[in-house]
C-alpha cells in the first residue's frame, strides 16, 4: 500500500510508542504526543500497538491513495473527508486507489494519528521509527513530511489485518458500522490533569503548592513537542537551591528560575536541572498531548499507587480492545 503526501499541514511526522535503550546517551523517548490515539488507530486496522503512525498537527493535511489502502485514524477534533464523503474515525476504512483524502479544515482539529495496515514503512533507527527532529533522527529520513513524499506500508501484517482487508476490499470507500472511541479510555475530568508529587515537590512554599493545585494554567505560546511553558501564577521555592542535573521524562513538570512551570512532552531532554514539582500520571499524558496554546488546565494530586492502578486498568482495556477487534473477524 502506498500514499503520496499532497499537503503535509503544519507539522507531520512518523511516530510510534517511543524509543528506549539509548536514554543514557541522551536520545529522548519521543513517539506519538498522544500514544493512546496512536494505539486506537493501530488497533482499528489490526496492527500491533507499537506500529508506526503519521502524526498530523492541526487541520489542512491531505494525501492521495496511490494504491488501494486500508487506514484508520484517531485523535482529537479532526475529520478526514474523501470525495466529499466523511471518513469516520476509529475504524478500518478501505480507500480505493486514486482517491484524495484530506483533513477537513476545522479549528478544533488537534493531533490526528493515521495508521495503515502493517504500519508505515520506515527503517527503525536505534530501535524505533519515531522522528526526533532536533537530531534529524528516525522517521522519514529524519525529517518532517513534505509535499510529494511517498509513504509505503510494511509488507508484513497481522492475520487479523489480512481478515479486515479481505472484508472491506472492493471498488468503493468501505468501512464497518462499529467504531472505537478514544474517549472511552479517558476516564478523567476534562482539563483536570492528575499529577504525582515529584522529588522536589516539598522545595516549594505551602502557598505555592496550593496555587499549583487550584489555579488555572494556560498553555503558553512557547510550546512544541518538547514541552509547554505554562502561563499562570508563578511558584516560589522555600529557599534558593540548585538542583544537580538529573532525569526528567515526558510528563515531568519542572519549575524554571522565574517560577514558571514547564510541562515536558514527548521530545523532552533526558536530564534537566530545574526542580521537578510533579509528574503527570500516564493516564492523563495523552490528554496533554492534545493541548495547544491558549488551553486552560488544572492540576490535581493523586498518589503514585493510584496512578499505577489507573495505568494498569487502561492497559487491560487496551488489551481487551485488541481482542474484541479480533473477535469481530473470527
Amino acid at each position: 500500500m502506498r500514499i503520496k503526501i499532497i499537503n503535509p499541514g503544519i507539522l507531520s511526522t512518523i511516530q510510534d510508542q517511543g524509543r528506549f535503550g539509548y536514554l543514557s546517551q541522551a536520545v529522548p523517548v519521543s513517539g506519538a504526543m498522544d500514544k493512546l490515539a496512536a494505539q486506537v488507530a493501530n488497533a482499528a486496522v489490526g496492527n500491533n500497538a507499537g506500529d508506526a503512525v503519521i502524526e498530523f498537527t492541526y487541520a489542512g493535511a491531505s494525501f492521495t491513495a496511490e494504491t488501494d489502502v486500508l487506514i484508520a485514524y484517531s485523535g482529537s477534533g479532526g475529520t478526514f473527508i474523501c470525495n466529499n464523503r466523511l471518513v469516520p474515525a476509529g475504524r478500518p476504512v478501505f480507500i480505493p486507489a486514486g482517491r484524495s483524502v484530506q483533513l477537513m479544515n476545522d479549528p478544533s482539529c488537534r493531533r490526528i494519528f493515521l495508521a495503515i495496515t502493517g504500519g508505515w514503512k520506515v527503517p527503525p533507527v536505534l530501535g524505533s521509527r519515531s522522528t526526533y527532529l532536533p537530531a534529524a533522527l528516525g522517521g522519514y529520513q529524519g525529517r518532517r513530511l513534505k509535499a510529494g513524499d511517498i509513504l509505503e506500508s510494511e509488507g508484513e501484517c497481522t492475520e487479523i489485518s489480512r481478515k479486515i482487508l479481505r472484508r472491506f476490499s472492493g471498488t468503493r470507500l468501505n468501512y464497518p458500522g462499529w467504531h472505537i472511541a478514544r474517549q472511552q479510555f479517558v476516564n478523567g475530568r476534562a482539563n483536570r490533569i492528575r499529577v504525582i508529587a515529584s522529588r522536589e515537590y516539598d522545595w516549594f512554599k505551602e502557598s505555592s503548592l496550593r496555587t499549583f493545585l487550584s489555579k488555572p494554567y494556560v498553555i503558553g505560546l512557547r510550546s512544541n513537542r518538547m514541552g509547554y511553558f505554562l502561563d499562570g501564577p508563578v511558584l516560589e521555592k522555600l529557599q534558593p537551591g540548585e538542583l544537580l542535573s538529573t532525569a526528567v521524562t515526558p510528563g515531568t513538570i519542572q519549575v524554571s528560575n522565574d517560577g514558571t512551570p514547564v510541562l515536558l512532552m514527548a521530545d523532552c531532554q533526558t536530564t534537566g536541572g530545574y526542580p521537578r514539582i510533579a509528574a503527570v500520571a500516564s493516564i492523563d499524558l495523552s490528554f496533554c498531548g492534545q493541548l495547544y496554546p491558549g488551553d486552560t488546565i488544572y492540576f490535581t494530586l493523586i498518589s503514585r499507587r493510584e496512578a499505577e492502578i489507573l495505568y494498569l486498568e487502561r492497559q487491560k482495556s487496551l488489551d481487551q480492545l485488541r481482542a474484541s477487534v479480533e473477535y469481530k473477524f473470527s
Binding site: L23, S24, L244
Partner: peptide, 12 residues
C-alpha cells in the same frame, strides 16, 4: 532503560 546522571540513576 536507565538515565545515569551525576548522583542519580533513574530506572524506566
Amino acid at each position: 532503560d536507565t538515565v545515569p546522571a551525576y548522583a542519580t540513576l533513574s530506572v524506566f
